Amino acid sequence: MDKMKLKLLYSDLKSDLEIIEKELAVAVNSSSHLLNEASLHLLLAGGKRIRPVFVLLAAKFGNYSIASIKSVAVSVELIHMASLVHDDVIDDAETRRGRETVKAQWNNRVAMYTGDFLFANAIEYITDLQNTYAHEVLSQTMVELCIGEIIQIEDKHYLEQTVRDYLRRIKRKTAILISASCELGAIASKADEKTVSHLKRFGYYVGMSFQIIDDILDLTSSDEELGKPAGSDLAQGNITLPVLFVKNDPAIEPLLSDILAGTISDTNRQILLTKIRESDGIERAKQISNIYLQKALNEVKQLPANSAKKSLQNIALFMSKRKF
């Protein structure tokens, strides 16, 4: 995703996001030098900070105050960072966003404890918000994320999984945290219940659409655009939606077996990717992503009129239509 184009869509939040960025730097600090290095390495890798952006935009529908909502934005981003560190261990990933992962630069043990440290800090930060329901939302989200991690391990290399299995998995992997970001931002600003519900559902639908597109891009983008080999999800045993649609194609099935077994050559990897790109699997996956996008936009329509409403709409469109 082109981060510069995305940032233009919420440029009015620039000063508040800078406050959150500084707070994140404080949040990853600890008395352990090793933990500091590993956490800071992850923080400096950057990212789109989409979840804090959704917290801030959702808070615009209530009594907006950066002082009262920054802890929520920091909490959800810490959870996201922690899940990435754990994901990289599960997937044995060496790079993320073109940089070495924590597990690659140090080891699996350091990566797992770094993730645990970030999760714990997220819980500590949310206590600044004097709302027990918000604490419940965050804790349930963390539970679902962890269940999602286990299910992802169970589903690795399993070609008999269904589309429903895939959708349940990405709900936990991605959609639930984006949904919680929107819900918590609205709760923190004391938005009314109806608005909170619309924002929660908006975040869920956007998250589903976003992850499907992310999985498509892993197959259709170049190695250079991704900062890692295209088809990395498959190489790690993760079966995504476009692949589920074409897994029984006689021209694809043998190559698919090879990449899942880890025996595919780079030449055959490119051949497999070409065949998947030329199949109808990509378009069918895009259609499902678009269904979720339209549901998200419908939730936006029902929100009260303000500047954040247009921003939510534009970000949803950008995230679901991006090319890399």
Rank of each mutant, 00 (worst) to 15 (best):
F61P: 04
L273Q: 02
P254I: 06
Y292E: 12
G115S: 11
E100D: 15
R168E: 13
S232V: 05
V143H: 12
E253S: 15
R51P: 07
R201W: 06
T141V: 10
T267E: 14
T114P: 06
L78Q: 07
I66F: 15
L9Q: 01
N298P: 06
S189I: 00
E94V: 10
L24K: 02
I282T: 07
N290Q: 10
R269D: 10
A188R: 01
L241N: 03
R99D: 09
D165T: 13
A175I: 08
Q294D: 14
I212F: 09
V163Y: 04
D2C: 07
N298Y: 13
E77W: 08
L40C: 12
V110E: 09
A251T: 07
K14W: 00
I271R: 11
I212P: 05
N29Y: 14
N108E: 15
D214E: 03
V72F: 04
E21R: 06
D249W: 07
I178C: 00
I69R: 02
H157A: 10
G98R: 09
L219C: 05
K310D: 12
I315C: 02
H157V: 08
L177R: 02
G237M: 10
A104E: 14
R169N: 14
A305W: 03
V163L: 04
K7F: 01
A73L: 00
I276Q: 03
F61I: 04
S265Q: 10
L57S: 11
D116N: 12
I264W: 01
I20A: 01
E100F: 13
G47E: 08
K70I: 05
G47F: 03
S68F: 05
T220W: 02
L8H: 04
E37N: 14
K14L: 02
A67V: 08
M319C: 11
V28E: 02
D88A: 02
G62N: 05
L260K: 05
V163Q: 09
F202D: 01
M1K: 04
M112Y: 06
I187F: 03
L17D: 01
L17Y: 01
V110D: 03
V28L: 09
S15L: 11
D214V: 02
N63W: 04
S265Y: 08
V55G: 04
V72L: 06
R164Q: 15
D91T: 09
T127I: 11
D92S: 13
R172L: 07
T95K: 06
T274N: 15
L199K: 01
I123T: 14
D16W: 03
V196E: 08
S11P: 07
D214C: 06
A120K: 10
R164N: 15
R284I: 00
D258H: 09
